[in-house]
């Protein structure tokens, strides 16, 4: 059971575009069936199994509801595990990255909260575009390299979003 495909756990076919509300409904239904609270009386062995099952379900849910993680997972289903950190050959995006980082530094200095909110909105729009592009190419084996590149871009954006969150926290002091 532990090796069941993340999508199969929710009776879904592997896809990039998924309805997150529907996924939530499926998750809660499954979680009810395998949560340790329902096995408070069970033997140690069964409890351990349920714990593992429940943890695996939580893990699957977390992967599928995040676009970057879902994209990465889809590619790994086909190509096997992808290394987490690689030197990305993506000069166009590199320039974009540098611009964003500069902006973030300026925002840190200016502590301009409305500008920070606007910046977040732009990152969100960039993520949406990546989602659209990824959807078009991930199933096409001829465009495999492009799909991997888009997935790496998503990962960068995710990291940048974390940095934005950290900045928000620092500015909240």
């Amino acid at each position: 059971m532990g090796n069941l495909c993340h999508f199969a756990r929710f009776d879904l076919k592997p896809a990039f575009r998924i309805d997150l509300d529907d996924l939530g409904v499926r998750y809660r239904k499954r979680a009810r069936e395998v949560h340790p609270d329902r096995f408070a009386d069970a033997g140690e062995r069964e409890k351990r199994q349920v714990l593992e099952e429940s943890a695996a379900l939580n893990d699957a849910y977390q992967v599928l509801r995040s676009a970057p993680m879902r994209a990465r997972y889809l590619l790994s289903l086909r190509d096997g595990e992808l290394p987490l950190e690689v030197t990305v050959q993506d000069p166009d995006f590199l320039i974009q990255q540098m611009q964003w980082r500069e902006e973030l530094e300026e925002l840190q200095d200016s502590a301009d909260l409305p500008a920070l909110a606007a910046f977040k909105q732009r990152l969100k729009a960039a993520q949406e575009r990546l989602n659209d592009d990824f959807e078009l190419c991930w199933q096409d084996s001829a465009r495999h390299a492009e799909a991997v590149r888009l997935m790496r871009r998503m990962q960068f954006l995710e990291k940048l979003n974390h940095e934005v969150r950290d900045l928000e926290e620092r500015l909240d002091d």
Partner: peptide, 8 residues
């Protein structure tokens, strides 16, 4: 803020 139970 990761949902429990969790194994990683």
């Amino acid at each position: 803020n990761t949902t429990i139970p969790v194994a990683r």
